[in-house]
């Protein structure tokens, strides 16, 4: 406890924290994100209804408009869909899946990219050349196309019966394997700079092995930009997930993410129940916007040139 308070104080007093408190945009987006993360994590406890429990659904309550509109029921704040599922609860559960896919694919991309970047930058030669050519080819295609192709290949490799159960894994893999290039390029660049420095030479003289040098000495020094890329990437990953689900090759309707909810709602666009599609769409847009704004702020705050 005695060391905790000073630590907290120095964190509060740091440059980053100062620039954070000064930036209204960063504070607001963080609060929004926190609220959405909490709503998603604790959805089973907070949501008014479990949309997947058939016992809780009553078809009398289907297609109800939002609570404030005429004919709305205060129990269903954002209305209900054709199956009487509460739209607000569906969004909370859907955000859970969107965020799981987003975080998992960002972690996959970061781990893969950082590892390959370290290897390429440290080893150089043929390993580096091959990796960077692959990266060039991947970068010359729009990410959504790459993700779609990986998705199609993975689904093709799986038996038909396993596709619904493995949708989550397939999505994480297709988005993660698309986005590693940026991490790899950045880490490779800074690794090439670091490995020529004296402390690396000193470590080598002491007999430290290559792997230990990479992991213990170079890695901590090249991780800074990775955090910024990861934040911006989270927004992209959530968007890509939503797009794939919307296109019908992502999460199945039995486990809907935000994208799936929008896809389902889109089918009822002409029957006048606009709330089924508009609210999930707004939730998705606000989520991505908040992540992007926070990422922009973080990039500027960590950039010493802009101070």
């Amino acid at each position: 406890m005695s060391t905790f308070m000073p630590m907290l104080y120095s964190a509060w007093d740091s440059d980053i924290a100062y620039s954070f408190r000064k930036s209204r945009v960063a504070v607001i987006s963080t609060l929004l994100l926190l609220a959405m993360f909490l709503a998603a994590i604790f959805a089973p406890h907070l949501a008014p209804q479990n949309p997947f429990d058939i016992a809780e659904l009553s078809l009398f309550d289907s297609e109800l408009p939002p609570a404030w509109a005429e004919g709305g029921n205060p129990a269903y704040l954002l209305g209900t869909d054709t199956q009487a599922r509460d739209v607000l609860s569906s969004i909370m559960y859907g955000m859970r899946i969107s965020l799981v896919v987003g975080f998992a694919s960002v972690i996959l991309a970061a781990v893969l990219g950082v590892t390959l970047g370290l290897l390429g930058g440290f080893l150089g030669g043929i390993v580096d050349a091959v990796l960077m050519r692959i990266a060039d080819v991947l970068l010359s295609f729009p990410p959504i196309l790459v993700a779609l192709l990986i998705n199609g290949v993975l689904r093709g490799a799986l038996p038909q019966s396993a596709q619904a159960d493995s949708a989550l894994i397939v999505l994480i893999l297709s988005i993660g394997l698309t986005n590693w290039v940026q991490y790899a390029r950045t880490v490779r660049g800074s690794t090439m700079v670091e490995r020529r420095k004296e402390y690396i030479e000193a470590a080598r003289t002491l007999g430290t092995g290559s792997v230990a040098i990479m992991v213990r000495h170079i890695l901590p020094n090249v991780l800074g930009p990775v955090l910024v890329i990861a934040t911006i990437n989270l927004g992209m990953a959530v968007l890509t997930e939503a797009t794939l689900s919307f296109l019908g090759v992502g999460m199945p309707p039995t486990q809907p993410s935000l994208g799936t909810l929008i896809q389902i709602g889109n089918e009822f666009l002409f029957s006048g129940i606009w709330w089924v599609v508009v609210f999930p769409a707004v939730a998705l847009a606000v989520l991505v916007l908040a992540v992007n704004l926070l990422g922009d702020w973080l990039r500027d705050a960590l950039n010493p040139k802009l101070r």
Partner: peptide, 20 residues
């Protein structure tokens, strides 16, 4: 906004406004 709102959402909103 244009960068954060997914393109398919823009499309749906266009349909909602101009078609529906």
């Amino acid at each position: 906004l244009g960068i954060s709102v997914p393109t398919f959402v823009t499309g749906i909103l266009l349909i909602l406004l101009f078609s529906v």
